[in-house]
Nucleic acid binder design. Structure first.
Lengths: 333, 333
DNA sequence: CTGAAAGCGCTTACAG
DNA sequence: CTGAAAGCGCTTACAG
């Protein structure tokens, strides 16, 4: 069924070298020959076998993007930025979905090790940190969104601590004093930074943070909902919630509504990320927006630099986050 | 850096054939030899080059899933089902995001043609239909969710016409008489079927469908919102909207709310798909649920059958859709 | 401008 | 139980 280059060569009465050149350096082939070859290609409906090409060239022009959870639209935004730059530079992007299980991330690493991709962009850093650093030494690896504390791995992200501080400052500005932070799992540096930003912001405003004012949840709707429920059940409902992700914020809002509290009338809520749904949900979510597409763009640009063997001017690109005030926050009565 | 099999063989004092066997048929290698080889593998941190293996075996154990739009969480659900079965059968899944542009789908087809994947599962049928059929003759191809009118391409989907009919029947049961259908782009068979289901359902109930009672929109939040706005502006707001997707339904609801109509008090709205957000959105969306994961499971099972050269018992698997009554529908006053 | 030939890194039928 | 050797389908430095 699938014709091989040899058959094309035979039909066109040339060598396989010439067929190959018609594809990759057509200007080096006489026009007449070229046409003969192209006719044969068309007649046999020939498609070169990329596996063979890649093996020969030791290069696949494929970039693997490992997404921790493809269900989260935050990552889709980043992915789009990556795809844009990759396509412009003749790279193809394939996506590996870790299904929220770090084990699967290790599995995708093997795709890289086994040379099925030229480089890997990780949208999560839940793997063993030493392993990530070692990988980055051996292969072109870029970390985006999440990060590790390392000076060697190329990273692109926002300043999560600053973003969290901004959220707190805004809530403080609105007159809120009792603010609860729904944090993400603290084994990611990103959650730690947002939490630290929360604590520093509170300190800055001379507000106290008591036991129970930081609740750890999963990065998910259910995580936010359950965390909020546990807070509500203590009977001490705060003036405002600052959530480490938009999905968690939706959970918090619905938990509040289910318990008879109205957002933002009774309680203000602020999220993090600005996923598309943040402006679809009612009330529209106030949030710290990450420049998702831009993160992807930058990550792929760094990847290209790594692939070209260029020195990176910056090992950690920090992009700008932004407070988007919408409908879930309100001055304290 | 990356060691080759040859080096491992040398270090272990065996042939590359033996090294290869240690990986793929360890039982055929004497334990002592095996241990020697594994020690060498460990010492050199050896990883086999998959490209070479795939070329030699003419098999990649990779399945390419082409998603029309990775931003739509409906497809994430299907993907999870595919991944589950693939992993169990030693296949790896890579995702190609067409970014809502059929052109990109053609590009991913080349991955298949160039032998970088053993098979392809298409989650959209917007490519030229003849092309899809031809592809399916040459390669293992399964179509899921969307479909073409063909008896040759293996397909798994729900009965979209029936699903739409069910939606209409339920609205009729609630006493609604003037029902507007927000349809998806009619160049997909899936949209045509849902529209036909709507029309048949209306006919069944002896309800009239006038000009303007079927509005075509994009399969997106904005598509639904704009379509609803155009309806609202005519001044003839219906008793109920039946939307061809959940995302569109959110757009419709928000457009209604922005125009002073309350859902479901004034207008009922019903969606299609049951994406995760359907039960997060407030009010929770009544919808026709597709068994997303199950569709993925079945699609991958069909793919496995194709890869094994087994005959498919059924070329078009039709799975069960289900009406989920939640909060956006209400009896007509 | 074109071809012969080596080689990318594996796997496997065959022989022993 | 193990090895020598052919071969998967390309690309490319070299020679002409």
């Amino acid at each position: 069924m699938a014709a091989k280059m040899k058959e094309v060569a035979k039909l066109a009465n040339v060598s396989t070298a010439t067929v190959s050149r018609v594809f990759h350096e057509p200007e080096r082939v006489r026009q007449e020959t070229r046409e003969k070859v192209l006719a044969a290609v068309a007649q046999l409906n020939y498609q070169p076998n990329a596996l063979a090409r890649h093996l020969r060239r030791l290069k696949t022009n494929i970039i693997l993007v490992v997404v921790p959870d493809i269900t989260n639209t935050f990552f889709s935004g980043v992915l789009r930025g990556i795809e844009e730059i990759a396509t412009k530079n003749a790279y193809r992007v394939i996506v590996g979905d870790a299904e929220s299980d770090p084990e699967n991330e290790y599995d995708y690493v093997n795709l890289l090790r086994q040379k099925q991709a030229d480089g890997m962009i990780l949208l999560s850093a839940r793997m063993d940190q030493g392993m990530i650093e070692q990988l980055a030494e051996e292969y072109p690896v870029v970390l985006a969104c999440d990060y590790v504390k390392s000076s060697t791995v190329p990273i692109v992200s926002i300043d999560n601590e600053l973003g969290a501080k901004q959220a707190v400052r805004y809530l403080v500005e609105l007159g809120h004093k009792h603010i609860v932070h729904i944090a993400g799992p603290l084994h990611t540096v990103l959650s730690q930074d947002r939490k630290r930003g929360f604590l520093k912001g509170m300190e800055e405003a001379s507000l106290s943070v008591n036991d129970g004012d930081v609740v750890i949840g999963h990065f998910s709707y259910e995580g936010g909902r359950d965390a909020a429920m546990s807070v509500i059940q203590t009977g001490k409902v705060p003036d405002a919630f600052f959530c480490a992700s938009d999905e968690m914020a939706f959970g918090v809002i619905n938990a509040l509504h289910a318990s008879g509290y109205v957002v933002p009338r009774d309680v203000s809520v602020i999220g993090f990320d600005n996923i598309p749904f943040a402006s679809i949900f009612q009330p529209q979510l106030t949030t710290i927006a990450q420049p998702m597409r831009q993160i992807g763009v930058k990550a792929m640009e760094m990847m290209l630099a790594l692939l070209e063997g260029e020195a990176l001017s910056l090992r950690h690109e920090v992009l700008q986050e932004e407070l988007l005030v919408r409908e879930t926050t309100k001055p304290n009565a």
